[in-house]
Design a protein around this nucleic acid. Structure first.
Lengths: 344, 344
DNA sequence: CTGAAAGCGCTTACAG
DNA sequence: CTGAAAGCGCTTACAG
C-alpha cells in the first residue's frame, strides 16, 4: 500500500505512527532506531506502519536532542566559481552520503555579509564550517577564530593554527617543467600572473629549482597578468629578441597559455614541434579549445574538497587532527601541446 | 563588557539568560521577541543580560515550534557552474537578508543523488525548494511534484503547472539582430548550437522574425555545436562560397563568436569594419578576451535568481502566485565587435 | 519486553 | 505586569 499521491499538508509524526501501531512513542522510536530490546514482531510491525504512513523523522527535533544538526556551513567569496565550484561539489559529494547537508554562503568580499552568514550558521547550529575562496593567499572577510565548532579552510588563506587544505603549487609546477625535460626540451621559460599572488612565487621558485637541478641556466620568469593578452605580449617580448628561442613555455594559467599558443601560431611557429606549451588550472573548456589542445596542471580541486569535507566530519566526530596547511598533489593532464619524447 | 574571547563549549540558553536576569524563561522570551507587555526596564534588563552573555536563540528549537526552518533547498545539476552560479548567488543574496539560508544540493544527473538530496531537504524541513540547472529544456533527475512545500524552477525544465523563471531567449536574440539593423548591417547570418537545444530554435525563430519584419531575405541559421571550432567551421562554410558575404554574424554563444572572430581575422576580414559579431551569454572572461572585445547578450541570471528566491519566499509566506513560465528579459552588453552606426 | 517521565531550547496561550 | 504550564517532535535513561 503506497503513500498517497498528494501528501498530507503536514508531515506524519512519530506519535501518529505509534498510535497506528498501538504502542507508545518511546517504543516506536526505539523500534525505528534499532535501539532497546523488544519482540522482533513488534519492531517489524512498527517499521511497516511507519513505512505505510510515509513517516520521516523530523530532523529539527532530532538535532535539538542530539546536539548535532548534520549540517555544515560553506563560506565562499568566489561568485564566479571557477575554483570554488569544484571544491564545493567535492565537499557536497563527500557529505551527502553521510546525511550531512551544506549551507551555501556567498560572502563576496563584504564584512557585513560575512558576519551575517557566520551568525546565521551559528544560530542554525551547524556542526562545522568550511571556508573556501578564489585565492589561497587571501582571507575571507569573516572571523572564524574561537568558534566552538570545527573550522576547515580549503583553497583560501587560513587563520594561524587552523587546519587548511591547499593545492601543492610547487609540486604542480615541477610536474610541468619535468615533463618538458623528459621530452628533451632544454630552453624552458615561464610566463605567469601578477607578483601579488603567492602562487606565482611558489610556481616560479619550483620552476627555478628544477632548472637548477637539471643544470640548465636559470631564466627569470616573466610576470604579468592572468590574461590571454599577457600571453601574447610575453611571446612578443621573448621571441622578438635575437638569439636562441625557447622551445618550451610553462604558463601560470590556461588563459596565458591560450594567448601564447595563438601568438606563436601567428608568428609561424608550430606548437608543439617548435615550442611546447603547458598551462595551469586545467580549465577544461579553455584547454580543449586551444589548437592544439593544451596540456595543463590540474589542482585536483574536487579531491581537495572531498578531503576537506571528510576531515571536517572527523573533527565533528571528536577525532583529533593536527593543525597546519596540507598541500595536496596536482596532476598533469597531457593533451597535445607538448609533443612526444625525442625517440617516441 | 564583551563576551569571552574563547566561547563556552556550549552555547548559552534562554534559561541561563532568564536566571541571570532573575525572571522566568517565558518572560525572557517575550522580552527578547518584543512580545507581550511588561515594564520597559524589565525588558531592557533582560536584553542587556542576553547581550552580555552572548545569547543567540537556537534556531532548531524555534523552527520546531514555528514550523518554519528559514532554510530552502537549492538543487542543481550544473557542476561546472557557468549558468548555475550566477543564479545561485542571486538566490542566496536575495535570501540572506531575510535570514533564510540555502542548502546546496548537487544532484549531477543521478537519480539516486537527486532522491537522496530531496529526502534530506524534506527531513530537514526546508520551507521550500528551488531547482536550477544548466539547460532550460532538461528536467533534473528528481521528482518535485506533490511536495507539500513550495517549489520554484529557475533556468531548468519545470513540471507542468509549476512556477518557473527562464530567460527570454527570443527577446535576447531580437536585441542582437535589431542592434545590427540599427547599425546599418543588412546581410545578417546566425550560427548556433545543436538542434537538440530548445534555445537554439527560440533564438533562430526570433532571428528569422526580425529579418522578415525588416523585409530582409531569410537566411537559414547554421546549426552545429557550442564550440569555437564550430565558429571557425561555419565561417569557412559561409565565406568560402561565391557572392556577397555577410556583414554581421549573430552567434548562439560566446565561444562560437570567439571562433568566428578568430576565423574572420585569419582570412583578413576586419571585425567590426567588415563584419560585426554578437555573442550570447555574456561570459565575461571570454567576451573580454576576444579581439576586439565581444558584444554579447546577457541573460541576467543573477536577477533571475533573485526573482526566483523572492517568489519562493512569498509562496512560503502563504501568498498565492500564478503557475506558469515567466520569461525574464535579456540585455545587450555592447563592447567593440559591432562598430558604430553609419553616421556615428 | 514495553511504557511513563523527563528533557532538548524555545514560544505561546492562559492564569494570576 | 509576570510566571507556570503545555507543547513543538523526538530520544533516552529509568521503572515496571
Amino acid at each position: 500500500m503506497a503513500s498517497d499521491a498528494s501528501p498530507a499538508p503536514t508531515p506524519v509524526t512519530l506519535r501518529e505512527v505509534a498510535a497506528a501501531a498501538g504502542v507508545s512513542v518511546a517504543t516506536a522510536s526505539k523500534a525505528l532506531n534499532g535501539q532497546g530490546r523488544m519482540m522482533a514482531e513488534t519492531r517489524e510491525r512498527i517499521r511497516e506502519t511507519a513505512q505505510r504512513l510515509g513517516f520521516r523523522p523530523n530532523s529539527l527535533a532530532q538535532s535539538l536532542l542530539r546536539r548535532r544538526s548534520f549540517t555544515v556551513g560553506l563560506l565562499t567569496n568566489d561568485t564566479y566559481g571557477r575554483f570554488s565550484l569544484p571544491v564545493m561539489s567535492g565537499i557536497s559529494d563527500a557529505l551527502v552520503d553521510k546525511g550531512v547537508s551544506v549551507f551555501l554562503c556567498n560572502v563576496e568580499d563584504d564584512q557585513r555579509l560575512g558576519q551575517l552568514h557566520v551568525e546565521a550558521m551559528l544560530d542554525k547550529r551547524v556542526d562545522g564550517i568550511i571556508a573556501t575562496g578564489k585565492r589561497i593567499d587571501r582571507h575571507l572577510p569573516v572571523d572564524l577564530a574561537n568558534l566552538r565548532i570545527p573550522v576547515i579552510y580549503a583553497f583560501t588563506q587560513p587563520d594561524p593554527g587552523a587546519i587548511a587544505f591547499v593545492s601543492d603549487d610547487a609540486g604542480g609546477a615541477r610536474l610541468a617543467v619535468e615533463h618538458f625535460w623528459r621530452l628533451g626540451r632544454r630552453r624552458i621559460v615561464h610566463f605567469s600572473g601578477p607578483a601579488s599572488f603567492a602562487v606565482v612565487h611558489a610556481r616560479a621558485q619550483a620552476y627555478r629549482d628544477v632548472l637548477t637541478e637539471k643544470g640548465l641556466p636559470a631564466m627569470e620568469p616573466l610576470l604579468g597578468s592572468w590574461s590571454e593578452a599577457w600571453g601574447h605580449e610575453a611571446v612578443k617580448k621573448l621571441f622578438d629578441r635575437k638569439g636562441e628561442k625557447p622551445d618550451a613555455v610553462f604558463c601560470g594559467n590556461d588563459q596565458i597559455a591560450r594567448g601564447v599558443i595563438d601568438a606563436l601560431r601567428e608568428r609561424g611557429l608550430d606548437v608543439p614541434d617548435d615550442v611546447g606549451v603547458i598551462g595551469f588550472d586545467n580549465w577544461q573548456i579553455v584547454a580543449e579549445a586551444t589548437r592544439p589542445p593544451l596540456t595543463s596542471v590540474d589542482m585536483n580541486l574536487a579531491a581537495l574538497g572531498r578531503e576537506a569535507g571528510l576531515t571536517l566530519l572527523s573533527l565533528v566526530g571528536g577525532e583529533p587532527a593536527a593543525p597546519g596547511i596540507r598541500k595536496l598533489p596536482c596532476r598533469l593532464v597531457v593533451r597535445q601541446s607538448c609533443g612526444r619524447p625525442p625517440g617516441g
